[in-house]
Design a protein around this nucleic acid. Structure first.
Lengths: 201, 201
DNA sequence: TCTACATTTGACCGCTTGGTTAAAACACAT
DNA sequence: ATGTGTTTTAACCAAGCGGTCAAATGTAGA
């Protein structure tokens, strides 16, 4: 692969990601991806043999950024409260930089449930360590006992939801875009506070 | 409209809802909707002039079931803790009966953001009442002070997330379908407990 | 400059899609 | 039975889709 070739390939991947995220798999058009990449449509098939291949390439790139940070943090040796604090901060920062990814993932997840297991499995997120830490700190009277599979889901849910359901939330609370940006910012301390308050003794 | 006609129309709406939810707007095929309804494809256009019209009909029906229950509960005169308890129970029950609706709504919300505001506005969910009640009960020392726009979002997020991200959650925690059903059931008391613990003084 | 290979293009293809049409089948009041 | 309006159908259409192909262009070493 030449340097020019790599540049073209990256251009395609970037354009494809944008279009797939905005329109979903079925709604995305190979022509539009080609146009945005500034190339001929036939060239898409030269680099990625089919639409499905192209989508797989895009998705695996997105997925590869999704889990490792989570895994790394879960396996660090911080105290639980610090771990939760950092996790929420890192996670919300990542979401702010890619606000459309969760909806994209959810959409793909539900219209095409197959083909995901490999990415999830490969990520190797292991909640057992978290459970152990919870039990340990609960035993030492630092927090109350909670189940890891609920705590983790609760935290992630609270982080992601305002991004995937933005139009609903924004409208019910009658915020403009500026106010919503502010609202998203304020959720960082709010979620951390909410969780820590809940798991205190 | 004759009785037979109404029957056909309902048949179409039911089939259309199933297909739209399973495949999304772009992925849904008029032919498949017709087949499932046991009728000719041309008859779809006789009752609903276009695919877009049919989708609107389906979505407005779904949306009309989404908010009224929420609104009614928020405006009832229960104490906050009872209100939260009932809300989670009712909401999870509705989700269990229609587990694919949230993903469908999120998908539509993000690929076609327009046309939603009317349903949301019409629903008239008013969080001001909730905020007032929170301030009141906080003033009386029953709970700590929280912001309604965070509390409400937190609760709904925790309820919905395991339904829209089921494949991920199920896989990370290595559950089979039976175990996941059980997990979803256990979340009811877990969420209620998590929230009430968080807002205690 | 010639050669061999990778990259890029415009034109094209078969198929599926949402949508139309004219006629048939039905329902029902007279 | 007949006429009238509604409901249903098979056949069809133009447009748009993902994908292909042969030819053109670029790029490097010999």
């Amino acid at each position: 692969m030449t340097i020019a070739g790599e540049h073209t390939e990256n251009q395609i991947l970037t354009s494809a990601r944008d279009v797939f995220i905005a329109k979903g798999y079925e709604g995305a058009r190979m022509q539009e991806i080609a146009d945005r990449a500034g190339i001929n449509k036939a060239l898409l098939h030269y680099y990625f043999r089919s639409k499905e291949n192209l989508f797989d390439a895009v998705f695996s790139e997105v997925a590869s950024h999704l889990f490792p940070a989570m895994k790394q943090l879960l396996e660090s040796d911080l105290g639980l409260k610090e771990k939760i604090t950092f996790f929420v901060k890192i996670y919300l920062k990542a979401l702010n930089e890619n606000p459309y990814i969760p909806a994209f993932v959810i959409n793909t997840l539900n219209t095409n449930p197959d083909g995901f297991l490999k990415y999830i499995k490969k990520a190797g997120v292991n909640p057992l360590l978290l459970q152990k830490q919870i039990e340990d700190e609960a035993g030492r009277g630092l927090i109350r006992a909670v189940k890891a599979e609920h705590l983790l889901v609760n935290i992630i849910a609270m982080c992601i939801f305002p991004f995937v359901a933005r139009p609903i939330v924004q409208n019910i609370f009658e915020m403009n875009d500026e106010e919503y940006r502010f609202y998203l910012e304020s959720r960082e301390t709010e979620i951390i506070d909410f969780v820590l308050k809940s798991i205190r003794l």
